[in-house]
Design a binder for these strands. Structure first.
Length: 445
RNA sequence: GCGUCAUUGGUGAAGUGGUUAACACGCUAGUUUGUGGCACUAGUAUGCAAGAGUUCGAUCCUCUUAUGACGCCCCA
C-alpha cells in the first residue's frame, strides 16, 4: 500500500469542513481590515530562505525540504510565509504602490521535522504581512486582527503575550548583557542552555528545564536595555492595544530566534486542556531588517502567522459551535430505469434552483436507499414512482416529521422554497443569538 | 539529530509460541410482495505494519526498517 509521506495528513470529512470554516472566517476578517490576498509559490530559490534566516540556527541545515530541480536549480519548499511575501513585494516593486501594503496568505508550508503534537511536515498556515510602515499602530492592528480572528472563530481563553526586542542597537546590547549575566552561573543550567549561551542566549529565557532557576528569574529583561526611542515605541504599541481593547501580558521571555526581528514580538496562546506541551496558536513580530537582507529597499515590516491544524484542534477541544452544513435538502429514491432517469433530470433541475439534492447511484434496494437518505440527513425525501410521475405528481415526505404529501411536479420548487425557508427561520444553535458562539443565525455555511 | 511507547479487519478492539484469530459496531444481502430506520438470518482478515532471525512451529520472542502518538533539540 502506498501511504502518505511522513508527517503529512489527509484532511477530509468533518475536519475538512472545520478547515474550510476557518478559511471563511480568516477571509472575512482580513477583508474588513482591508488586507489583500496573495498567493506566492510553494517553492522558492533556496537562497531566499537561507538569506532570510541566516545560518545561526538548525533551520537551514536540517529543517527545510531542499532539492535540485532538473535544471540544477536549488529549490526549497517554503517553510513559512513571510520570506515569499517579502520577496514578492520587492520583485513586484510594490513599494512603488500605495503604502503600506497589507497582505494576507493562506497555504501549505513544509518543514523537515520530527512529527509530534502540533507539528507536521506539511502544515497549513494563514498569515499577514504589512510592509512599508513603521507606525506602532500597525503592530497593534496586526495583533488585533489575530485576536479578532480567534474571537470570531469562537475560541475562548486567548492570551496575548507581547514583548519588544528594541532596535538593532538595543537588541545587541541586550544580547551582550545576557551573555555577561549568565556566563558566571552557567554551570547551574542544563546542557542545552550551555550550548545556547553563545549561540542564542535569548533562548535560555524560555528553557523548559531551567524555568525555575532563580538566576533565570533575575535575568536582565529586554526592556532594561531599550533605548529611548524603542521604549517610546513600545509604549505606543501598548497604548493602541488598550485603545483597541485587546488584552495582553508583557512577557519579557518572548523572544524570536532570528536576527531580522526587531521591536514588537508576540505570541498568542490558547488555554485548552489536552493541547499538548505547547499551546501557542499564533505568533508574529516586526522585521524591519528583512527587506534589506533580501536586496530590497529598507522597508519596515510586521507580520503574523497561525497554523490551521492546531486551530481546528482547538475548536474541537473547546467544542466550539461551528456552523457546518451536515444535511441535504432532498434525497430522491427510485427503482426502475425510467424513474432513475427522472431522478437524474429532477436532481439537476433542483440543484440549479439552489437546493442540495442527492440521489441513489449504486442501484440498491429501496430499503437501502431509505437508509442512505437518513445517513445523509435528508430533510426531505421523495420516492419517484412511475405512476405518480405519469400523473405529473410527486410524493414528497418530510423526513423529520414523516408527513407525506402528493404535489404537482410543477410546484416542487415552490413547495421546497416554502418548506425550507420555514426551516431556516427555525434554525438556531440553541443559544438564540445571545451567547458568544458566533454562529451565523441567518444563513448556513 | 536524540528519546519513550505503539502498529491486529471498514471501525473500536480481545487474544495465544502450536490445527477454524473472540466480541461489538459498521457495511452488503435476505425475511419484506415498491415506503425504510426495529427485529431476526447470512456474508464480511488466505491474516495480526514490512523484512530478516530464533524455533519442529511465531501474530505472540529477537533484530532491522517504515509509520503513528508524545517528548527533547530547533522553532521560521
Amino acid at each position: 500500500m502506498i501511504t502518505k509521506p511522513k508527517g503529512c495528513k489527509d484532511i477530509y470529512g468533518r475536519e475538512a469542513k472545520i478547515w474550510k470554516y476557518i478559511d471563511t472566517v480568516v477571509d472575512s476578517v482580513m477583508e474588513k481590515y482591508n488586507y489583500n490576498y496573495i498567493r506566492t509559490p510553494i517553492f522558492e530559490s533556496t537562497e531566499l530562505f537561507h538569506r532570510g534566516v541566516g545560518d545561526t540556527s538548525d533551520i537551514v541545515t536540517k529543517e527545510t525540504y531542499d532539492f535540485k530541480d532538473r535544471g540544477e536549480r536549488n529549490i526549497t519548499l517554503r517553510p513559512e510565509g513571510t520570506a515569499g511575501v517579502v520577496r514578492s513585494y520587492i520583485e513586484n516593486k510594490m513599494y512603488g504602490e500605495l503604502n503600506p501594503v497589507k497582505l494576507y496568505y493562506n497555504g501549505t508550508m513544509y518543514r523537515y521535522e520530527r512529527p509530534q503534537s502540533g507539528r507536521e511536515r506539511e502544515l497549513t498556515q494563514f498569515g499577514m504581512e504589512v510592509l512599508g510602515s513603521d507606525d506602532p499602530l500597525i503592530d497593534s492592528e496586526v495583533i488585533s486582527v489575530a485576536v479578532n480572528i480567534y474571537k470570531m472563530l469562537g475560541l475562548k481563553g486567548i492570551k496575548v503575550n507581547i514583548n519588544t526586542l528594541g532596535d538593532t542597537e538595543s537588541r545587541n546590547n541586550y544580547r551582550k548583557a545576557l551573555i555577561d549575566y549568565f556566563t558566571p552561573h552557567i554551570d547551574s543550567f542544563c546542557e542545552d542552555c550551555k550550548e545556547r549561551l553563545n549561540k542564542n542566549p535569548l533562548r535560555i529565557l524560555d528553557c523548559k528545564v531551567d524555568k525555575d532557576n532563580e538566576i533565570l528569574k533575575n535575568a536582565p529583561t529586554t526592556i532594561d536595555y531599550l533605548n529611548d526611542d524603542s521604549k517610546k515605541r513600545f509604549d505606543k504599541v501598548k497604548e493602541y492595544l488598550d485603545l483597541l481593547q485587546i488584552e495582553y501580558i508583557v512577557n519579557p521571555n518572548i523572544v524570536r530566534g532570528l536576527d531580522y526581528y526587531s521591536h514588537t514580538v508576540f505570541e498568542i496562546e490558547a488555554d485548552i486542556e489536552g493541547f499538548g506541551s505547547n499551546n501557542v496558536i499564533g505568533a508574529g513580530g516586526r522585521y524591519n531588517g528583512l527587506c534589506e537582507i533580501l536586496d530590497g529597499p529598507a522597508t519596515p515590516g510586521v507580520g503574523f502567522a497561525s497554523g490551521i491544524s492546531r486551530l481546528a484542534m482547538a475548536l474541537e477541544l473547546e467544542e466550539v459551535n461551528i456552523p457546518i452544513k451536515e444535511d441535504i435538502d432532498l434525497f430522491l429514491l427510485y427503482v426502475s430505469e425510467d424513474e432513475k432517469k427522472y431522478a437524474a433530470y429532477l436532481s439537476q433541475e433542483l440543484r440549479m434552483a439552489g437546493y442540495v439534492v442527492d440521489t441513489e447511484y449504486t442501484n440498491r434496494s429501496l430499503k437501502a436507499q431509505f437508509k442512505q437518505a437518513d445517513r445523509l440527513n435528508a430533510k426531505y425525501i421523495a420516492v419517484l414512482n412511475s405512476d405518480d410521475l405519469n400523473n405529473n405528481e410527486i410524493k414528497i415526505k418530510n423526513n423529520i416529521t414523516k408527513e407525506e404529501e402528493i404535489i404537482s411536479l410543477d410546484a416542487i420548487i415552490y413547495y421546497l422554497d416554502e418548506k425550507l425557508i420555514d426551516d431556516i427561520d427555525e434554525h438556531s444553535c440553541d443559544c438564540d443569538g445571545e451567547c458568544d458562539c458566533h454562529c451565523n443565525h441567518d444563513e448556513e455555511i
